[in-house]
């Protein structure tokens, strides 16, 4: 129905390339992204290590591929979880109105009271080094945006003559969702989902960067940057790699979301 723009296609292509890299590298280059080899520390790209090695002599190409899998995996899981919950509750609030709406809005307002990263930080502090606070925290932050956007659209759709007509013509709630709500919600869900995934990638990297996220030696983009930062002078090309990857990931997702400003 809605034709994607050129920018959106570019975003999809870029994301597919990154995913292909992340999934293809382990097939082509066997090895362990956490295996250290101090004699091979900070090798420049080329030779047996196509993208060079880090300060512990670990293979950058393997580490980057693993880090992208981790970032995209978390992003996919959290946006999917948040999306399903957020859209379902948003439609419920918008279509039902009344106390259901007020109660759900209350929950959303409560979560919005605290900046997202603070919430994630507090959850991570409870169980350091584990994954569940990351998933839970990021999902908690993301579902609110789905909820708010979906609810606003659902309120408008629920009040529209088209939905009233469907009800009078004898159609049930499933039909109304499929024919009236979903066609309008789908593009919103895509936009929020792409932005949400970008937020997730950024949050995980930020947590890694301040050392409270995923624990070493698991490769993670933010953590790789902080580890490589001391060597900006000796190995700028190695430090540039995780930075470039985060940039491309978020750029791809922002392009998919369209040129909008959230």
């Amino acid at each position: 129905m809605i034709r994607p723009s050129r920018g959106q296609w570019a975003g999809v292509a870029l994301l597919l390339l990154l995913a292909l890299f992340a999934l293809g590298v382990p097939q082509l280059i066997p090895g362990d992204p956490t295996r250290q080899s101090l004699s091979n520390a900070l090798l420049p790209p080329g030779g047996p290590f196509p993208l060079g090695t880090d300060a512990f002599g670990r293979d950058m190409v393997l580490r980057l591929a693993a880090a992208i899998r981790l970032s995209l995996g978390i992003a996919l899981l959290t946006t999917a979880l948040a999306g399903v919950i957020g859209v379902a509750l948003g439609v419920l609030a918008g279509a039902c109105g009344g106390w259901v709406d007020r109660a759900l809005c209350g929950v959303a307002d409560t979560l919005l009271a605290l900046p997202g990263l603070l919430l994630v930080l507090l959850l991570v502090a409870i169980a350091p080094g584990q994954f569940w606070p990351l998933y839970l925290g990021v999902s908690l932050v993301l579902w609110v945006e789905y909820f708010r956007m979906t609810r606003a659209a659902a309120l408008r759709i629920a009040a529209s003559p088209a939905v009233e007509a469907s009800r009078l013509l004898g159609f049930g709630p499933v039909y109304r969702f499929r024919r009236h709500y979903w066609p309008e919600l789908a593009p919103i869900t895509l936009t929020v989902g792409a932005f949400g995934s970008a937020t997730s990638v950024m949050s995980v990297a930020a947590l890694g960067f301040v050392n409270v996220g995923v624990r070493p030696p698991t490769p993670e983009l933010g953590q790789m940057m902080i580890e490589l930062m001391p060597y900006y002078n000796e190995a700028p090309l190695i430090l540039a790699q995780p930075i470039l990857v985060v940039f491309l990931l978020v750029l791809a997702l922002n392009l998919i979301a369209g040129g909008k400003t959230q």
Partner: peptide, 25 residues
């Protein structure tokens, strides 16, 4: 527009790193 979409794809700490690298170093 191009500048904005580029900057929005950079996490804050990367912008910081680039500024440090560019202006300070």
């Amino acid at each position: 527009f191009a500048l904005s979409i580029t900057l929005r794809a950079l996490p804050q700490f990367v912008i910081g790193l680039l500024l440090i690298y560019g202006l300070a170093i």
